[in-house]
Write a protein that binds this DNA or RNA. Structure first.
Length: 301
DNA sequence: CCCGGATCCTGCTGGC
DNA sequence: TGCCAGCAGGATCCGG
């Protein structure tokens, strides 16, 4: 399940391997992978063929390759991995490959880039770039103040040097909802998914249902520090690989799964106090927590 | 406007 | 052994 560290690992891989590559061929194997493409496969093909990639950029879980070519409008190939999307370079054919990109490099070398996606929540699309609301760079990997229209509503993430932390804390505390729901809201702060939300809450000793507006600024700041710390640690380990639905562009797994304290560890002992970790349904998904380190809030009546 | 629940999808797993 | 319910969860859509 790619969250910020996994998407960033993939972005860095693309930045290393496909910049300056020209798209010389496309094999669209499943139309639904283009469901966010205006004009469908025709427009996708027309806008992409002959372009080359100029930068690999990321904001939260959104990834894009900026394009240079015949198109007069600034555009990018937007990639959202959903929950099982992968980008693979020079990998053997996969039955879950949705789009294949034939790339040609200035030195004459060729390579195939595959968008692989088992559970099909991911998508790719060529979209226009629009100015950022704050005039600051659109994401990690580019100095241009532009983002794809599709990602214009997505907030900056915790690894973004232009994130306004004071404003973020203020906006989280203005929410009439539980703290985990706020952490997962990509319009508040992007990049955090179920895994890193649970890990950050465990590190901070907070229950997922604690009311966001009842937390002190210092508590929210501490929680965000933990979230950014756990994601940086994961990034250093190449991300979290559970069930092989996440690998980097070279097909390698990440090693952070072994460092998780609570996520997916039902019945295992809390690393801090040895109490068995519990799993609970919350927001239509699983939440893992230590029942001792993360006590439920008293319900108001 | 804000909040929260339902929904899309596929493949694997566990229970009977 | 075979079948089927349940589970995994990104973002988005819609109703209250």
């Amino acid at each position: 399940m790619p969250e910020l560290p996994e998407v960033e690992t993939i972005r860095a891989g693309l930045a290393r391997h496909v910049l300056d590559a020209t798209v010389v061929g496309l094999d669209i194997r499943r139309d639904s992978a283009l469901r966010r493409q205006d004009g469908g496969r025709t427009e996708f093909t027309d806008r992409l063929l002959g372009c080359h990639f100029t930068a690999a950029v990321r904001r939260g879980k959104f990834l894009w390759l900026t394009l240079s070519g015949a198109d007069e409008v600034a555009a990018a190939l937007v990639i959202h991995l959903g929950m099982s999307g992968q980008l693979r370079l020079g990998s053997p054919p996969s039955s879950h490959s949705r789009i294949r990109f034939d790339l040609s490099f200035p030195d004459g070398r060729t390579e195939v880039l595959d968008f692989v996606d088992q559970r099909t929540f991911g998508y790719v699309a060529v979209r226009d770039l629009v100015p950022t609301a704050d005039g600051l760079p659109g994401g990690l990997g580019s100095d241009r103040p532009q983002v794809p229209d599709l990602a214009a509503h997505i907030a900056r993430d915790l690894l973004d040097p232009h994130l306004d932390r004071t404003d973020l804390v203020h906006r989280i505390r203005a929410r009439q909802t539980g703290i985990k729901r706020a952490l997962l809201d990509q319009e508040l702060v992007s990049g955090i998914g179920n895994i890193y939300a649970d890990e950050a809450l465990w590190r901070a000793g907070l229950h997922y249902a604690r009311a966001a507006h009842r937390l002190r600024s210092a508590e929210v700041n501490r929680l965000l520090d933990h979230a950014s710390e756990v994601m940086n640690e994961s990034l250093a380990a190449g991300g979290t690989t559970f069930d092989e639905l996440y690998v980097n562009v070279d097909g390698d797994a990440g090693y952070f799964a072994r460092a998780l304290a609570v996520y997916g560890r039902t019945g295992a002992n809390c690393p801090r106090c040895d109490t068995p970790i519990v799993r609970e349904a919350f927001m239509n998904r699983s939440s893992f927590r230590c029942p001792r380190c993360q006590r439920p809030p008293r319900t108001r009546r």
